[in-house]
Design a protein around this nucleic acid. Structure first.
Lengths: 218, 218
DNA sequence: TAGATTGTTAATCGATTAACAATC
DNA sequence: TAGATTGTTAATCGATTAACAATC
């Protein structure tokens, strides 16, 4: 039922994205069907969670064969991809920005970084891995022309809030934020923060703790 | 009470890391004290959460002045940092790996990437932003010599599981995984996955949905 | 059929928020 | 003091897991 108002959570969508990639691997190995517990093992989650997640894309398996790899893959792609493909913008061509452009070049057929922006004139009009760099002044123009709704933010912290506001102003409704600053955005804009310092400090904290636990006398 | 067995969650630790950075900014602006709701606004979280988080580091504010910036900053650092500083290893010197080495160079005084590893001989023995690149063969040796417990994984997907196993074998207890593959690790190893494809697909999904919601007749 | 797996509901778990007496 | 803020407990919320009848 197309009109059913389903509540998607970010975690579910992220797992669907992972399932899709794992299923593509399975198809390359000529697997035609797969059970929830098999997919669960590949994804490192519980089988119950796999079954519940798959319910959300309105695909059904059968007790005998589990899930048909090809069919499930198609249904996942119908949920995750826009049929005609989709373009993404990237703001800030520093080390991280360049690495992300290189990483995503050709990776997903229906999701490509097609426009980059930087305020540094020396970077403008270059082409990196098929992605053209534009001046900040043409932000709105390019975003509207290419129908872009999703942006990656890799500018320095100080510039992040203003850059994000400009993006929203130009019609962006989803931001992946690599700048290590909390952003204040209107509610209709979806935001994911990828703060690398926070991530590394957290891992280091628990790595230390694990060692401490080991040293404790049993 | 130092011995109190407190249960730390990854989310709380990550927020403490953020609070610390925000407080450092405040101190640069000569703020001596700050209220929970002020810090909450900067961090884009609720005031109740700030108060509860700060409780976990055993620091107390006062109704009159809120929190003393300097004191809270010190207590957060005592929790997050190892007093004598700490080294981190990075595996896989591709685009992402190089960008991360550049990003973290000199960023945190007590947390530095000091050793990189790659299986490509042409990359070995170079020095990037003060970080030396070693051959994979000396993994254990270097990790033990530098007392490293935390590692960043930026190798290609196929190599990730084996590389992670080698890290664990060498004594690593925390991994920040940028390789887009779920890893199976012993339970004492702390793992955070940073799957960029998953993140971008999720943001794009919700960005699309937001637009759809806008178009809906009220 | 017997046995394993599915879809789906109920129970559990953990994290966030609301509320409020104590306090400066 | 009066008023705002704190530490802390109780209520709420959402996500995960367990359980089980239906099914191939």
């Amino acid at each position: 039922m197309a009109g059913g108002q389903r509540q998607w959570s970010a975690k579910v969508v992220a797992r669907l994205s992972l399932y899709r990639r794992l299923l593509a691997d399975q198809m390359n190995e000529s697997q035609t069907h797969i059970y929830s517990h098999e997919l669960a093992k590949l994804a490192c989650v519980s089988a119950a969670q796999v079954r519940r997640d798959i319910m959300t894309v309105d695909y059904s398996g059968t007790p005998n064969r589990g899930y048909e790899v090809r069919e499930l893959l198609d249904d996942l792609s119908r949920t995750l991809d826009q049929r005609e493909g989709e373009n993404v913008a990237l703001l800030g061509i520093g080390n991280i920005g360049r690495a992300l452009i290189a990483f995503f070049a050709g990776r997903r057929p229906k999701l490509a970084i097609t426009a980059a922006f930087d305020s540094d004139p020396s970077k403008v009009n270059r082409v990196l891995f098929g992605c053209r760099c534009h001046p900040m002044e043409s932000l709105r123009e390019v975003i509207e022309a290419e129908g872009i709704r999703t942006a990656i933010l890799t500018v320095p912290p100080r510039a992040a809030q203003a850059a994000a506001a400009a993006l929203v102003d130009a019609g962006i409704t989803g931001i992946l934020n690599y700048a290590a600053v909390p952003l204040r955005l209107p509610r209709h804009v979806y935001l994911t923060d990828y703060d690398m310092t926070m991530a590394l400090e957290t891992v280091a904290f628990f790595a230390r703790r694990s060692r401490l636990a080991e040293q404790k006398p049993s």
